[in-house]
Amino acid sequence: MITKIRTYLRNEAHRFERRVKAKGFKQEVSYRVTKIVVSIVRSFIVFGLCFVILYPILQMIVAAVTNPDDLSNPLVVWIPRQFSLEFIQFAAEILDYRTGLINTAIMSFGVMILTLITSSLAGYAFAKLKFKGINILFFFVLFTIVVPPQTIAMPLYMIFNRLGLTSTLSSVFILAFLGMGIKSGIFIFIFRQVFRNLPKELEEAALIDGCGVFKTYYLVMLPNASSAFITVGLFSFVWQWNDVFYTRLLIAVENLNILALNLTSVSTKLVYMLQKLGVDQTLAEGISRNPLLVGTIANTGALLMMLPLLIGYLFVQRYFVESVERTGIVG
C-alpha cells in the first residue's frame, strides 16, 4: 500500500515538473487549483442534490420498517430499536396489494405494448411514408400534445360510458391503441424523429433485396430503432403506472383495484377496513383522523406502490439513460 502511494506521488511529481517546464510554474499551479476547486464544487452540488432525492426515499423505507412504538420516540433517529413489518402488512391489506399489483401491472404492460405498436407505426409513416396532406396530420399530432387532458376529460368519459367500457381496463387499452393515451403525441413525435434520422440507403437496400414496405419496416427499421422502443416503452409503462388522472376518469375505484387510485384514498379505505373488523363507525372515523397513523400508512403505501418500479429501475437504469441519449430525439 505505502509503496503504491509512494510511486503514485513520484509519478505525479515528475508529471508536474514536466508541465511546469512546458507551461511555467504559475500557469500550472493555477490550472491545478482551478481544477480541484471546480471538482469540489461540482461534487458538492451533484451529491448534495443526490442526497435531496434519496433522503425522502430512505426516510420512507425507515418509517415503513420501524416498530410503531419507536416512531414517536425522539431518541430514535434513522435506525429503529426494533424492526417490524407491521405497517407494511397493514398498508398491503389496505391497498389490497396483491390484486392491485396484478391489475396495475396488467394495465401498464398492456398499455405499453399497444402504445409501442401504434406510435411506432404512426411515427414511421410520418417519417418515411409521406403522402399528400400528411403534414396537416402531423400538425394534429402536435395539437393533441398541447391540448390539456382536462379539456377533453368529460366527453371522453361520456364516450366510454356510452360504450359501457368505463371501470374496465379496456377503456385505457383502447385509448392507448388509438394513440390518444397518456402523452401519446409525444411518443409518436419521438418515433418520427428517430425514423427520420435513419439513412435512406437502408430503405433502398431493402427494396433492392426485395422487401416490401411492411417487410422493410419490420426487418430493417425496427431493429435500428431499438433505443426508441426502449425509451418509449419505459416511459409509457411508468407513466401509466403512476397515472391518476386517466385512471380516475375512466376506471372507477370500487370495481377495479389500481394501486395509484387506492393510494389516493387511504383514509377512506382505513375507515372501511376498520368497520369490516367490527369497529364502531364513529370510532373508526376518529381513528382515521389520527394524522400520524394515516400518514404512516400512506407513506408505506407509497413505498409499496413505487417498489416494483424501483426494483425494475435497478435493472434497466443503464438502458434508460443510454437509450434516450442514443435515440437522437433531439438531433
Binding site: 425522502p56 426515499i57 418509517a63 403506472w241 403512476n242 397515472d243 391518476v244 388522472f245 394501486l259 395509484a260 387510485l261 393510494l263 389516493t264 387511504v266 383514509s267 394524522p291 394515516v294 400518514g295 404512516t296 400512506a298 407513506n299 403505501g301 407509497a302 406502490m305 413505487m306 418500479l309 424501483l310
Partner: peptide, 13 residues
Amino acid sequence: IASDAITTALSQA
C-alpha cells in the same frame, strides 16, 4: 417515482 398518487399520499405524511 414522480406520481400524483405518491405526492397525495406523502402530503398526508
